[in-house]
């Protein structure tokens, strides 16, 4: 598991030694997969990185805008398919295709978010859920464009000109770079005027509105950013597998993302990263144990469900809140997810 911490509201309370140790440990964990030279570890680490990028976005939406998306896999899929289609059918270079994917998902997110985020209640959850199902059907049915159920192959490696990231360590470094940028951006957002406004909004939407915060506009902004991050992750995924097919972008993955965010903790930038790592590793551990003891392999669904329920009940701030408890030696105040 990644050592994770979040910048506490009063950073001074965390001891410097603790912070330094945390960063060192983090650096070690990031370098370990490359140093090991083990292709399997690298692959797992790459998947964790890609999932963490989406999870951070979803975390912003859930933790700061107080909204839940049940169709984030669709944005992930839109990014992946845009990259796949543009690079294989139009010969557009990877970065151009990735940018096109970001623009496309941003447009879809605005169209979906603008009408729904002004309403209270379950509307965004409902519309994202519907979008997820519709997008999945399009991936399956628009055969000429998407290759249908069989998928689309022949996606080139990620790269610019002569510089091609066609080995695993290179690709891993690229994913880590994108993840780092994502974390920095998210941190900035959280500590910016917008972030403060959103936090206020989370405490009391009414109070925020009364103090002149345009609640709906900020919510929309966060939603669009989270969709764009999912799209970037999708493009990376397409270059990793050099192949896309509809199945990985369904409701099941949207739920998995939700578990990552909730388990890690939505109200911190590091929480979703920890959640992504935890869930992926837990999945692998169950599968590995299942190779020896077959019935264990069937435990995955039940265990993920139990983790999700237990975390919401006992650790509403996610597992990441454990590190700040450890650091401050005082329990965090209970609050919503």
């Amino acid at each position: 598991m990644k050592p994770t911490r979040r910048p506490p509201p009063q950073a001074e309370h965390g001891s410097i030694v603790f912070r330094a140790l945390g960063w060192l440990l983090l650096a070690a964990v990031v370098v370990a997969p490359i140093a090991s030279g083990n292709g399997y570890l690298l692959t797992i680490a790459i998947f964790i990185g890609i999932h963490a990028i989406i999870a951070i976005g979803l975390g912003l939406l859930m933790g700061y805008a107080g909204q839940v998306s049940l169709g984030h896999a669709a944005f992930y899929g839109l990014g992946a398919y845009t990259t796949a289609i543009l690079t294989t059918k139009a010969g557009i270079p990877p970065l151009g295709a990735m940018a096109a994917g970001i623009v496309l998902t941003a447009v879809v997110a605005v169209l979906l978010g603008a009408p729904t985020l002004r309403l209270h209640g379950h509307y965004l959850a409902m519309f994202t859920l519907g979008l997820g199902i519709i997008v999945q059907i399009i991936f399956n049915q628009a055969r000429g464009l998407t290759g249908g159920f069989g998928g689309l192959m022949g996606i080139p490696p990620l790269g610019v000109g002569y510089w091609q990231l066609d080995t695993k360590p290179e690709f891993y470094i690229a994913v880590i770079a994108v993840l780092t940028v994502t974390i920095l951006l998210a941190n900035n957002l959280v500590h910016s005027r917008i972030g403060r406004a959103l936090r206020a909004l989370h405490e009391s939407e009414l109070a925020a509105a009364l103090s002149g915060v345009d609640v709906a506009r900020y919510k929309l902004l966060v939603f669009v950013i989270s969709a764009m991050l999912a799209s970037v992750a999708g493009s990376l995924y397409a270059h990793l597998l050099r192949f896309v097919s509809p199945d990985p972008f369904g409701f099941a993955f949207s739920v998995e993302l939700l578990i990552m965010v909730v388990a890690g903790g939505a109200r911190s930038v590091w929480g979703p990263v920890a959640g992504a790592a935890l869930l992926t590793i837990l999945g692998e551990v169950i599968a590995k144990t299942g190779e020896q003891i077959p019935w264990v392999a069937d435990l995955d669904v039940i265990l993920f469900g139990a983790v999700l329920t237990a975390v919401v009940i006992f650790l509403p701030q996610g597992l990441i809140s454990l590190t700040s408890r450890l650091r401050r030696r005082s329990p965090t105040a209970p609050s919503t997810v």
Binding site: V68, V301, I302, F304, G305, T309, V312, I313, V337
Partner: peptide, 12 residues
């Protein structure tokens, strides 16, 4: 989220 967790447990 809690009910999604429950649904996974029942399904599993």
């Amino acid at each position: 989220i809690a009910t999604i967790g429950v649904s996974l447990v029942l399904k599993g």
